[in-house]
Amino acid sequence: MIKRLFITGIVFLAVLGLSVAFPWMRVPLIMALVYGTAALGVVVLLRAGQISFGHAMYMLISGYTVAFLSEAFPGTDGIVLVLAGTGVSLVTGMVLGLFLVRYRGIFFGMLNLAISMVIFTIVTKFYGMTGGSDGMRVPRPSLFGADMDRAGYEATLLIILLILAVVLVFSVQQFFRSSAGEAMASIKTNEDRLEYLGVSAKKLLWQGYAVSAGLCGLAGAFYGLSQGLVTPEAGYWLKSGELVFISILGGSAHAIGVFVAALLFEFVKMYASILVGGSWQLVLGVTLIAIIYFLPDGLTSLLRKKRQTAEVRS
């Protein structure tokens, strides 16, 4: 435990140090943490053997909640906006989950995609309310009651997201190890047996779905606050695809994986855009192929291999 806290502290300080030494890195780091949080939601479902191709919709729902509230109630604190956005996404996930957890595999994945595209289209077409494809502005709010300039605002967002990432990794890891989390993971291998133990697999998956929607909502709220703008693109299927990409890259063995993967994703994307211009997707594609080939269970499988090697040696 002390070793883990020590490593966490080192990583925490390293990220903060990078953002101080290279201020231009603040935004990519913020976006990596935002995507990591959202991908963590996708990973929760991956544990149960389910994959969603539409989870960016919860980022969109939360982002627009933040935008609507900051327009309707100017001066609302950013933290209140985050709580509201996350809450709306969580409740939406709980309602949609009642229907979606009846399906498995490709049907589950495609139904999420279908619903996300319906929401995307509604947001795009209701121009008068949502600003259509131009989106809605999110004026820079106060954070914990303090008004800040752009640099201070970004630095504070980064610190909040870093603290949140640490809390989420520990909390989600606790969820994975909990009795409900282990039971949810068993849906992946034998759902029928779970029923024959007297456990409702649907209820377990519904709980997991609500958690995943809440995590994506949390990410969506910070996405809106950090970008200062929310557009329908936040919920487009390509964005959902990016979340799946990060989830596969990170793996589902440990919650830390998606944050490492999100950092890798953000920086590979950034440098690929600089180096090969319009072909950055090619670099990302090759990266994913390499990861699937060499580490089919994602980056976190390295942790497992290290543990197994240590066991063999002992």
Binding site: R177, S179, A180, E182, L197
Partner: peptide
């Protein structure tokens, strides 16, 4: 352990599987 917590209906988000049993 999963069978045990299923019987006791003690599936929880907050208690580790080993400890819940």
């Amino acid at each position: 352990e999963l069978s045990g917590v299923a019987r006791q209906r003690k599936l929880s988000l907050f208690t580790n599987l080993g400890k819940a049993n």
